[in-house]
């Protein structure tokens, strides 16, 4: 894959992650610390987290076409790295109460759910494209039969 296309895909993923992280912060925050109030500075947290999550996604870069198995393996490595990055931030943060195991589990669970959703959205986009290709293929075969 061209590196330029790889970067464009990562940019799309970045905005997707920013949205999903915002939703995850709202849901987990409402459940564990509903009284918390944030300032303008904290509004940047989802963007910062999304940017940090982008770094581990570089492990999926390859100049040659990866097999499905190899890509699956790299995605698994990527998930472990993202979990590591987010938990490291959580444990070093003064705002997040990591002494509560349910908070740590909720953060790790949110990362996993966001990871699955982000991949699901990409797959749905590809499925829609495949549907269009099938319509065009059918027309092509009818025309050349």
């Amino acid at each position: 894959m061209e590196f330029k296309r790889f970067l464009i895909n990562k940019l799309i993923l970045f905005f997707m992650l920013t949205t999903l992280i915002t939703v995850a912060v709202v849901l987990t925050g409402s459940a564990f610390d509903p009284e918390a109030r944030f300032g303008y500075k904290e509004m940047l947290i989802p963007i910062e987290y999304a940017a940090l999550c982008m770094l581990p996604t570089l492990v999926t870069w390859s100049k040659r076409e990866l097999s499905a198995k190899a890509m699956l393996l790299r995605k698994a490595v990527m998930l472990v790295l993202i979990e590591g990055v987010i938990l490291l931030i959580a444990f070093t943060s003064s705002v997040i109460d990591t002494s509560r195991i349910e908070v740590v589990l909720a953060i790790a669970g949110s990362v996993f759910v966001i990871f699955v959703l982000a991949n699901l959205f990409v797959w749905l986009k590809d499925a829609a494209e495949a549907k269009k290709l099938n319509r065009e293929l059918e027309a092509f075969q009818k025309h050349h039969a």
């Binding site: 699956l72 990409v122 590809d126 494209e129 495949a130 099938n134 293929l137 092509f140 075969q141 050349h144």
Partner: peptide, 16 residues
């Protein structure tokens, strides 16, 4: 051979 393709399905990571 495009005439031999029955259908196109999404594969992993942007491939078909």
């Amino acid at each position: 051979n495009l005439m031999k393709i029955r259908s196109i399905q999404p594969a992993f990571n942007g491939r078909f």
